[in-house]
Simulated assay, not measured.
Amino acid sequence: MNPVTVITGGSRGIGAATARRLARAGHHIAFSYQRDRAAADTVLAELHATGTTAVAVPVDTRDPDQIATLFAAAADLGDLTGLVNNAGVTSPIGPFVDLDPTDLRHVVDVNLIGYILAAQQAARQMPAGGAIVNISSAAATLGSPGEYVHYAAVKAGTDALTIGLAKELAPRGIRVNAVAPGIIRTDIHTLSGQPDRPEQTAPRIPLGRPGEPDEIAAAITWLLGPDASYTTGTILRVSGGL
């Protein structure tokens, strides 16, 4: 039987790249998007063209009822085997003292509460052999001073979630890991007010360039697959040396 994987935030960036790669690996896919139906339809068309069974569901991941709807759609594809917790946001880059509380709450709610709600649904439904991959960030250990310390703090929370949940679910045969990307070429930088940030920061990256979404998708796909069968509670850093 084909694996069935849920991806939150699958219409763009790392999520879309992961959907495409998992489709090539034979997964059926249910992915969420928030507003951009056209982008979701484009990804769906690409997946269907490979023969993959896939659905796109509009979801605000902060809402437990909408998360439940996403997982119900995935159940129609078969038994759930994987979750990629990817949906995320940043806020305008700037000094910590200028952080708007509204932006703070939005970052916490989407990047941490949303992950917890999705992981909770997955833990309820997954049989032995399932796997969860949370998308963290190199910011969790770098701290992102002068940029978004609050985002870094939330991603450190993602790492703690990954480690704790890995230990709790291991007796049931469910693995939980995280991928911590560095600076990747996605439109998340536009949302933070610096669309050219990947190129601007390239000189400080040891490998001398930002990463590509498919490089992160490759790590996610490995962690979901049988070659990572003895890997759980791991934060896999894919950051070009940062």
Rank of each mutant, 00 (worst) to 15 (best):
M1D: 03
P3D: 00
V4Y: 02
T5M: 00
T5H: 00
I7W: 00
R12S: 10
G13T: 07
G13N: 06
G15C: 03
A17D: 10
T18Y: 03
T18R: 12
A19F: 07
A19V: 14
R21P: 07
A23S: 10
A23T: 05
R24K: 11
R24P: 10
G26E: 10
H27R: 12
H28L: 14
A30I: 05
Q34I: 14
D36M: 15
A40M: 07
T42M: 15
L44P: 13
E46P: 11
H48E: 08
A56Q: 09
P64S: 12
D65A: 15
Q66G: 03
L70W: 04
L70S: 00
F71N: 02
A73V: 02
A74C: 01
G78E: 06
D79V: 02
L80K: 00
L83W: 01
V84A: 04
N86Q: 02
N86F: 02
N86S: 05
G88N: 02
V89R: 07
T90A: 15
P92V: 04
P92Q: 08
G94R: 01
V97C: 07
D98A: 06
L99P: 09
D100A: 09
P101D: 07
T102N: 10
D103A: 10
L104S: 03
H106Q: 13
L112H: 01
Y115C: 07
Q121Y: 04
A122E: 02
A123Q: 09
R124K: 12
Q125F: 07
P127W: 02
G129M: 05
A131G: 05
N134Y: 08
I135Y: 07
A138I: 15
A138L: 14
A140I: 13
G146E: 05
E147C: 14
V149I: 14
A152D: 11
A156R: 08
L165E: 10
K167V: 13
K167F: 10
E168C: 12
A170M: 11
N177A: 01
N177Y: 02
A178Q: 15
V179Q: 01
I183N: 12
I184G: 11
T186F: 09
H189Q: 13
D196I: 13
E199F: 14
E199Y: 14
E199Q: 15
R204A: 14
I205W: 10
P206L: 13
L207T: 15
G208I: 11
G208R: 08
G211I: 04
E212Y: 06
P213W: 05
D214C: 06
I216P: 01
A217Q: 02
A219S: 03
L223R: 00
L223F: 00
L224G: 00
G225F: 01
D227I: 04
D227L: 04
D227F: 08
D227C: 06
S229E: 06
S229T: 13
T232H: 00
I235V: 03
L236H: 12
V238M: 04
V238Q: 08
S239E: 13
S239G: 09
